[in-house]
Nucleic acid binder design. Structure first.
Lengths: 202, 202
DNA sequence: GTGACGATGTATCGGGCCGATACATCGCGG
DNA sequence: CCGCGATGTATCGGCCCGATACATCGTCAC
């Protein structure tokens, strides 16, 4: 998952580790707190070894105001890396639908096609619906066996599920009718598209 | 965190691994999907090695209808384990306030005192408020730099934060005025209590 | 009856990710 | 001129997951 996030960010601009972490923190602010260096640096090495990103050690900085001699390593995505990114973004496994995976995919939605967006949105909805049904079953079957606090926690979780499903429904409807969330979209891959032959709604 | 959950469940009844996993899945349904065996069994060994739980291999089952000869290992909490549980439950580190940690602590709230409950509730609130402020800052400062999907995700996250804070506020208010969530509580440790000399509210 | 199948059970292994830690340089303010 | 916080790269132990293996039990179909 982190692999997808790194590739996605490097798609926008070359960066070094520290920068990447900050950028990751703002773009994925909702999803995860902040990526750990203990994960980031080994992952960067792995991606480099796989040929998806290129390393470039810089002695002096490019930016005029800074004349540092500190050694940084700037990473840049390669052609193979872009392919890999597209593959990861479009392919959907079970881990695509849990919180972290879905968040990362969603963040880069403007870089994929509508069919993929719909597939992932619907997969996520199914996942949350399953969790919701599980909670409803539990509350109706074993509800009186649980103490007040546990019960309250489950109710709160159930509420969050219902809210999430409504949010997803709305996104799916918008997607089907060719609208992007707030009506302003990054035109990366998306615009000329009209795949579905018949729609459920007029 | 898993350690706390296991100790908490074994506090209610002796169990073997498989059973523990199922029980864990229902009690912590909101928090985590289901605990992995790859985590559960090594953890049980660790807890046993530390002397917090006792192992008891059973050849024949106790329950009359079943006459299985399959070998199970039933775990039972020890006196030291109960101490450990109380310590873990009452002590609050940073990891107590993230989703998983808070969920587990909350699940066993009826087994601790009101002061601890308030401390954890307030810590969690602070954590969510920080995330909320971070999201607000990002949306107001770098909002126009982000694409529509990322923006929508952050807005959804912000909404969830606000909702969570309101939920916590309510719980804190109830706690301060001596009420439990749905007015019915498990009387484990809680009842005879009135520590705070002066309250903020009448 | 017998054979397939799903639930019940215990266990290991590789890998992803985290938190703590170490080390070094830069710019700023006291 | 000295400390301190931001910048930067890197490693290590540890938690937890998913995949996998192996074995027994009850049940239902054939």
């Amino acid at each position: 998952m982190l692999e997808l996030a790194i590739l996605g960010l490097l798609q926008e601009a070359p960066m070094h580790g520290y920068e990447l972490r900050k950028e990751l923190a703002t773009k994925l602010g909702t999803i995860r707190a902040a990526i750990s260096y203990g994960t980031l640096y080994p992952t960067l090495k792995r991606l480099h070894a796989a040929g998806w990103i290129s390393e470039q050690a810089t002695e002096t900085d490019i930016v005029p105001p800074m004349t540092s001699k500190r050694g940084r390593i700037v990473y840049k995505i390669t052609a193979e890396g872009k392919e890999r990114f597209a593959d990861l973004l479009a392919q959907a496994g079970p881990e695509t639908y849990d919180d972290a995976g879905f968040g990362v995919h969603f963040t880069f939605f403007s870089r994929t096609d509508r069919a993929t967006r719909l597939r992932i949105l619907e997969g996520r909805r199914r996942r949350i619906e399953e969790r919701r049904e599980g909670l409803r079953d539990m509350l109706s079957r074993a509800g009186d066996r649980l103490d007040a606090y546990t019960l309250e926690l489950q109710r709160h979780g159930l509420d969050a599920c219902e809210r999430e499903v409504r949010w997803l429904e709305e996104l799916i409807t918008n997607e089907r009718s060719g609208r992007t969330p707030s009506s302003a979209a990054d035109p990366a891959v998306a615009p000329p598209e009209d795949p579905a032959p018949h729609q459920d709604r007029p």
